[in-house]
């Protein structure tokens, strides 16, 4: 590599880092300016002391976990079955799972409200539990592209067909095969899908706002409209959480014990 290409390489890297970090550092710097003249964590203290912050954040975390469980229960058996028995259906299923990226959340939620309102045959919006359920399923849809892709990629690393046959001939039924053989072998993939789901659900605004649930996304928006410094502190917190999730993905996939079936 010549000196020139090396210089260009470094320049591009530095430009990219600046492009990424400058706005963030501006954001962070501003969030520290709640007290006039000096840097302080006043805005953060304010945020953490707000009972609404705790309530909405806890709500969103619980919703995220529920969404992850639903997502795993739907996606793992589906991806497994498509790989094993219906490989011809893979492009269609993939297309279907990509739809949430194309259809705006606002369209999805209006569809939900029309279908499941109190006058419908399944009045989910009539109760808090029903609305929460609806929201969790909505989140599952939003996370579907990431979850499906992650799991499908995970299944590619193992010989699904042969492992399934090996388990069958040893007497295992479908449930045992999924729980004891398939799922443990795609744990890193499922986890990476799960963390992406987590990051999406924590910041999601549209579904929660229109279904009127006390989630973190609408709270973030409300604070942003009414306060000066706190929204920036909140943004920094949200960023940190998301990055922590991504770091966790890296960590888990690096230290996972499962290895491919063949070498």
């Amino acid at each position: 590599m010549s000196v020139w290409t090396r210089i260009v390489g470094w320049a591009v890297l530095i430009f990219g880092l600046l492009y990424f970090f400058l706005p963030l550092s501006g954001l962070f710097e501003f969030s520290l300016k709640a007290r006039r003249g000096v840097y302080s964590f006043d805005a953060y203290r304010e945020v953490f002391a707000d009972p609404q912050f705790q309530a909405t954040f806890t709500y969103s975390v619980v919703m995220a976990l529920v969404t992850i469980v639903i997502g795993i229960l739907i996606v793992v058996p589906t991806a497994f079955w498509v790989r094993l028995k219906m490989p011809w259906a893979r492009p269609y299923v993939e297309f279907l799972t990509l739809l949430p990226l194309v259809i705006p959340a606002i369209v999805v939620v209006f569809g939900y409200i029309r279908l499941y309102n109190t006058a419908s045959w399944l009045p989910l919006t009539g109760s808090i539990f029903g609305t929460n359920t609806l929201l969790a399923f909505g989140y599952t849809i939003l996370a579907l592209p990431y979850m499906y892709r992650a799991v499908d990629t995970g299944l590619r690393t193992i010989d699904v067909a042969t492992l399934t046959e090996a388990a069958q001939i040893l007497g295992a039924g479908w449930f045992t095969i999924l729980r004891r053989v398939i799922l443990p072998n795609v744990v890193p993939a499922v986890l990476s899908g799960a963390f992406l789901t987590f990051a999406i659900v924590i910041g999601e605004f549209t579904l929660a706002a229109l279904l009127d649930r006390p989630a973190f996304g609408p709270y973030l928006q409300r604070i942003g409209a009414n306060k000066a410094y706190e929204p920036f502190a909140l943004s920094v917190i949200a960023f940190t959480i998301t990055w922590a999730c991504l770091a966790l993905i890296q960590f888990v996939s690096r230290f996972s014990k499962a290895a491919p079936a063949r070498h």
């Binding site: 492992l163 001939i169 491919p260 079936a261």
Partner: peptide, 20 residues
């Protein structure tokens, strides 16, 4: 009888040991 009811042992070309 389904595969899992036949009580047969099988060894595969690709070993097919459970990696986990």
């Amino acid at each position: 009888l389904k595969t899992n009811q036949r009580n047969i042992g099988m060894v595969f070309q690709a070993y097919a040991l459970f990696p986990n």
